[in-house]
């Protein structure tokens, strides 16, 4: 397998330490209706280096969310091994924090109390220290002045900022982002991508970002991993050598377009494959 050898190569040359290591990760689902097991993710081998920003790109329903749930520890794997800093992932832990596709804010908590929620659950920080960090993060994600607002008073983009700050407030070794901007309008999404990179440059946390948006993957990541249509397998890995910090010019650069085209062809095949399968199932 060329994918396997490429990750081996990475491991040998790597100067920085490996943060997340997946070996042959396979995940099955039990589907009540069909009364059968269902293969969602099949044999994933990935190494993510410390401080690296990796995007997993794939068509919807390809198992990429299932995979990131396994990394977060809320989804059990049925085969292979998944380790973080050499420790096997058995469940949720304070070394990882997730930014969700739906903001998932507690509507009865203010912005500040929502940002503190994760740290509070993990019993990580002292009351005063966490409050100080929360205030710093609220400013960092651009919500200064909204500390006392309730989620219902915020726009979708602002809610996602809280979602991000909540994850960062736990000071994770690894930041997991599950299509956090998918539900936003195009302008807000680009703005949030800029903001995410700005925050990330400051925090330099290892990040795993799930998306079905090619531009988003290229703009954000150091490396893009393309998942095939169901079951999720690694189809291709592409290093994104665009210089950082990235901004408006990055999106307009020729190199950006080149990488985008490359990924586009790759993912198009998968989208078609997935569509064909849907049609076949519809006919059956």
């Amino acid at each position: 397998m060329d994918v396997g050898s490429s990750t081996e190569g990475l491991r040998n040359n790597a100067v920085s330490r490996v943060n997340l290591r997946a070996r042959g990760v396979t995940i099955h689902y039990w589907v009540e209706r069909a009364n059968a097991a269902f293969l969602a993710v099949d044999g994933i081998d990935v190494d993510i280096q410390e401080g690296e920003f990796v995007a997993i790109l794939g068509p919807s329903g390809c198992g990429k969310t299932t995979f990131i749930n396994a990394v977060s520890g809320t989804q059990a794997i049925s085969g292979g091994s998944l380790t973080l800093d050499g420790k096997s992932i058995e469940g949720p832990g304070p070394d990882r924090a997730m930014v969700f596709q739906q903001a998932s804010l507690l509507p009865w908590r203010s912005v500040r109390d929502n940002v503190l929620f994760g740290a509070q659950m993990q019993r990580r920080l002292g009351r005063e220290e966490s409050a100080r960090r929360a205030d710093h993060l609220i400013k960092l994600v651009g919500l200064g002045g909204f500390e006392k607002a309730y989620p219902s008073e915020l726009s979708g983009g602002m809610q996602q900022r809280v979602n991000l700050a909540r994850a960062l407030a736990t000071n994770p070794r690894m930041l997991l982002l599950d299509e956090p901007f998918a539900a936003l309008d195009a302008q807000t999404r680009e703005l949030m991508q800029d903001e995410l990179l700005r925050v990330w440059e400051e925090e330099k946390t290892t990040a795993l970002f799930i998306t079905h948006d090619i531009k988003e993957a290229v703009f954000l990541a150091d490396r893009v991993i393309v998942f095939s249509a169901r079951p999720g397998r690694i189809k291709r890995e592409v290093q994104v050598d665009l210089p950082r910090p990235r901004g408006r010019e990055t999106r307009r650069s020729d190199r950006f377009r080149e990488i985008e085209d490359l990924l586009h062809d790759s993912i198009q095949e998968e989208v078609l494959a997935a569509a064909k399968r849907e049609l076949a199932r519809g006919a059956a």
């Binding site: 977060s72 809320t74 949720p92 990882r96 998932s104 929620f117 659950m121 993990q122 736990t170």
Partner: peptide, 18 residues
Amino acid sequence: LDPALIRMARSFSARDWD
């Protein structure tokens, strides 16, 4: 209850009592 909220809390290692 919104199951997304439960999942969110679980991912932050919330215990039953939390």
